[in-house]
Amino acid sequence: MHSVGKSWLLLTGFVLFYIIYLLFGALVFSSIERPVEDKLRHDMETLKQQFLNQSCVNAASLELFLVKVLSANKYGVSVLRNSSGASNWDLTSSMFFANTLVTTVGYGHTTPLSDTGKAFSILYALIGVPFTMLVLTACVQRLMYPLVLAPVGLLQRSGMEPRPATVVHFVLLLVLVVLCFFIAPAAVFSAVELSWSFLDGIYFCFISLCTIGLGDFVPGTQPGQRNKQLYQVSVMVYLFVGLMMMYLLLRTFHKMADLHGLTTFLQLPRCEESEQDDDREPIMENKYEDQASPYVTEKAASKPLEPGSQPSYNTINKG
């Protein structure tokens, strides 16, 4: 009973810390974004006034027109002249949508309009999300040996202790992933998408691969995109492989954390081990934040996916 009470205490502590973390985020975002938003609002107001002064349209009808245009824009239908040709629901675009749905990225740039579409989305997500996790973890399991176990073994054979070996390997893997799945795609995106800067590209990669999917930057939506279908398919492949690598990273990190932190807690009763595990991880993360890169935080960000994928880990990655 003592251990139960203790773990409840720990959980309460976690929740409190989490709430504080959220409040902190709220303060920071509010202070950063508020001025920009105010400026944009002021600009829009003046733009609207200028437009009304120039033309003979009255304010009410313009309001109505804008509401309709904006709500249509929300569903990806634009009234701009040069974008009238492309549909958001051709085959590749629909596939892109389905991909964002089942990988839980969910950009929200296109959303189903009809009730039938919504109903089908529910069903499709309920089956597709676990299935995607299954496929991803199966792939990660395959990749685990050539990318994790073999290099660590190599490092150990070349005369390193197990713990430093895992750390070195993890850092190497992290750098590799950041290079291949953040820097390089960001460069490609900033080249292909005219309006994106390099930082926008990195932002997009991070938001996508952590399956946050804010949807403010979505590839292949700019009007007049050449080879749009090929582009979208390649983005899909990128998303899938990138997610896989993120899982691999997560998995490797778990392994390493086990090897490092958990050994000291082994003598405690089993019940508390999960909590100890939790307790340990932030420490580890902080530790690596110093030496590795700011992207360590992405582990935390991509955690929401984890519960769904854990069971697959359990069974598949056990051996």
Partner: peptide
């Protein structure tokens, strides 16, 4: 972080 919390909540 959130995942940890989630796991904890789920566990309890």
């Amino acid at each position: 972080m959130f995942g940890i919390l989630l796991a904890g909540v789920g566990d309890h």
